[in-house]
Computed example of a mutant assay.
Amino acid sequence: MMKGVPKMLLVSVALLAWACSLASAYDPSPLQDFCVAINDTSSDHAVFVNGKFCKDPKLATANDFFFSGLDTPRDTSNPLGSNVTLLNVDKILGLNTLGISLARIDFAPYGLNPPHIHPRGTEILVVLEGTLLVGFVTSNPDNRFFSKVLYAGDVFVFPIGLIHFQFNVGKTNAVAFAGLSSQNPGLITIANAVFGSNPPINPDVLAKAFQLDRNVVNYLQKKF
């Protein structure tokens, strides 16, 4: 150990370095104009960045940064009455390393985008049509619930990693657009993850965690 350097200081520096290393899980700032993703990994000159191989910048075209058809209503004839069209790096290859993505969310009357989280992205949502009840819950131990009814033109922010939802409380269809601060924000739908995991979580664990009868847990696991 270096003379004059307290052990606790070295431990603190080590912990800080470890914490900083965790930040690499988020989208890093790009050091070039763009890095268009490609699926062809056979090239000897391909560069692997953010989970994608990149094409030669000289070969990039306008279509690498383009998507058409987001004005078209999506099918909401499903049990939840909602449909999310996510434009992430898999849909727009030019998004690679740029740290953003976009989603269109269609709602049938009383349709729900159920409680979920985006582990790698904050979401900002703007309502184009209809009336949405939205909300998010903070982390333990407070679990504060922030909620608002939104109308056309209203905007709401959902912080990264927090459980949130959108619910169409109107009698007509609703449409919203959401921007996310990651090229691949990820999605964990709470009910699907808890009751629809593969293989299933032990029903006794869920029964105790949610204070439910085991038969109710079995029913929910079959539903999901």
Rank of each mutant, 00 (worst) to 15 (best):
35 C>H: 03
42 S>C: 10
152 A>Y: 06
208 K>C: 04
84 V>T: 07
88 N>D: 13
74 R>V: 04
62 A>V: 14
219 Y>N: 15
155 V>E: 09
37 A>F: 01
106 D>P: 03
29 S>W: 00
98 L>C: 01
106 D>Y: 01
58 K>D: 08
174 A>S: 11
4 G>P: 06
87 L>A: 11
102 L>W: 15
115 P>Y: 01
20 C>Q: 14
95 L>M: 03
110 Y>E: 03
223 K>D: 10
63 N>D: 13
195 F>G: 02
166 Q>K: 01
214 R>N: 06
115 P>D: 07
202 N>V: 15
153 G>Q: 05
181 S>F: 00
118 H>G: 06
122 T>Q: 12
74 R>Y: 15
115 P>I: 14
208 K>T: 03
140 N>P: 05
129 E>F: 08
100 I>K: 12
109 P>R: 00
14 A>R: 07
72 T>G: 10
194 V>A: 10
114 P>H: 03
116 H>L: 15
216 V>G: 14
25 A>W: 08
117 I>L: 15
32 Q>A: 12
131 T>L: 03
102 L>T: 12
42 S>P: 13
142 D>Q: 11
76 T>W: 05
209 A>L: 12
139 S>Q: 03
147 S>R: 10
59 L>Y: 11
144 R>K: 13
68 S>G: 11
3 K>G: 10
42 S>L: 06
48 F>E: 13
94 G>C: 11
49 V>R: 11
60 A>M: 14
123 E>Y: 11
11 V>Q: 13
102 L>A: 14
13 V>H: 09
91 K>S: 08
12 S>P: 01
86 L>E: 05
151 Y>K: 07
221 Q>F: 13
84 V>C: 04
25 A>P: 05
71 D>F: 08
155 V>I: 09
30 P>G: 01
33 D>N: 10
173 N>P: 00
29 S>L: 00
202 N>F: 12
82 S>T: 09
42 S>A: 09
115 P>Q: 13
30 P>I: 02
94 G>M: 00
194 V>Y: 08
178 A>E: 06
148 K>N: 15
135 G>H: 14
116 H>V: 14
147 S>F: 05
211 Q>L: 02
46 A>M: 15
190 I>Y: 05
120 R>G: 04
193 A>H: 04
37 A>R: 02
172 T>N: 08
74 R>L: 15
7 K>D: 00
33 D>R: 10
51 G>W: 12
193 A>T: 05
118 H>F: 10
175 V>W: 03
176 A>K: 10
40 D>H: 13
53 F>W: 14
47 V>N: 14
94 G>L: 04
222 K>N: 12
40 D>T: 11
30 P>T: 04
133 L>V: 02
88 N>E: 09
154 D>T: 07
15 L>E: 03
91 K>L: 08
209 A>P: 08
155 V>P: 04
188 I>E: 05
17 A>M: 03
147 S>I: 07
34 F>N: 09
153 G>F: 13
79 P>N: 07
114 P>N: 07
36 V>F: 01
128 L>F: 11
94 G>D: 00
178 A>D: 10
114 P>D: 01
190 I>S: 05
172 T>F: 04
194 V>T: 10
109 P>Q: 04
69 G>C: 12
154 D>W: 03
6 P>I: 06
